[in-house]
Design a protein around this nucleic acid. Structure first.
Lengths: 200, 200
DNA sequence: CGTTCAGTTGACTAAGGTCAATTCCCGTGG
DNA sequence: CCACGGGAATTGACCTTAGTCAACTGAACG
């Protein structure tokens, strides 16, 4: 793997911990690069998730199948990482699937190698804690939003803070991310457009 | 603090890591016991959360004030721990509050002492990671439930798996935990009772 | 061109929100 | 022991929004 391949993940990790060159070298040997095409699966429901994938470029969608409907609950793009954390941590089959929605390049670390890092590189134990805390805060916020906000408020928040997501993800997947049907999102958007028109 | 005071928390921690007697002694000096009465606050919105509180006995409710309404998003009872994790980790003022709903006895560790444990006791770094991963999985499940389940399905799940919560928490707080108004929960219960009656 | 799939729209139903009135429950003070 | 007060829960009436099913439109692609 070229140094340029790991530049982004190295920057990402450095936001959490300082790692000296020797420590970094140990990690880097364990990382692998992979190219994925739109429509590919990172993991399918029922498989045990064995990888954490840092996204150099491209986009992913995590979803579950519920009564035959395909419902999205998470999206990730470049400079984020994606995995089925629950399956990865518990070594149980995953309930959902993760699919490539934009051609992607990822840098991956598998479960065994990660355990190796935890045991051998002291900085990693701390990194593991910090990143788990970080994603915990993120998902807590998501849970609070789902509990306390209406679909309309959730959509307005996306408009305000996550334009990237709206621009790169088809509307019916956005709908399920907000917890509603595609028809309802369509009407919601219409309502908002009318309100905005009246205010001009 | 008596050894009996820390028996429960010690058992709790041992579910995550093995700690030898010497390591445990270092911790134990840092733990303090506190008695709280129903109605007391563990933390109020706007304060920085400085404590993690393990519950020896009693019950707590985490809630937020939204348009003057008081909305519950979490409950915790004996042999769980409670804190405003986000405020505790980020050292920012908390958005919500935590209140005692049943007279309680807690064993507490403050932020600085916890950092001390992370730095000095190697097992703690791992413990911190494992527990962050554990709570992450919990809140992920909660977010998925809120996204994919109807209030009725959420309520039925409580009936099935969390009778304790239904028995110990007033109904209007359960309603807000499900993301609906008290009147709606009352009607939902009535609907379910009618369905059940018809099936007999 | 025709097929396909995403998005929109219409008509209708069901569920939750809101506000107000009523009933129930429980603790407190007379 | 009873009466009263106050909060919790229920019920009713009405409104708004989401769900459902079906039809239609439009753009993308072969």
């Amino acid at each position: 793997m070229l140094a340029s391949d790991s530049a982004q993940i190295r920057l990402f990790i450095s936001q959490f911990i300082k790692m000296d060159e020797a420590e970094w070298m140990v990690n880097e040997r364990l990382l692998t690069k992979r190219i994925l095409k739109k429509g590919d699966y990172l993991i399918r429901a029922g498989e045990v998730c064995n990888l954490v994938s840092f996204i150099n470029k491209g986009g992913f969608r995590a979803f579950m199948e519920i009564n035959g409907e395909d419902r999205s609950n998470y999206f990730a793009f470049e400079n984020e990482y994606i995995t089925d954390y629950k399956s990865f941590l518990t070594r149980q089959p995953s309930v959902g699937s993760i699919q490539v929605i934009e051609d992607a390049e990822v840098i991956e670390l598998n479960y065994n190698d990660m355990q190796y890092c935890y045991e051998r590189i002291s900085a990693w134990q701390k990194f593991g804690r910090l990143i788990a805390e970080y994603v915990f805060i993120g998902v807590s916020q998501r849970a609070a939003d789902l509990l306390f906000k209406t679909p309309e408020q959730l959509y307005l928040a996306l408009l305000k803070d996550k334009r990237k997501l709206l621009d790169r993800v088809p509307q019916h997947q956005i709908a399920s991310y907000l917890g509603i049907q595609p028809e309802s999102l369509s009407r919601l958007r219409k309502r908002l457009a009318q309100v905005r028109a009246e205010n001009t």
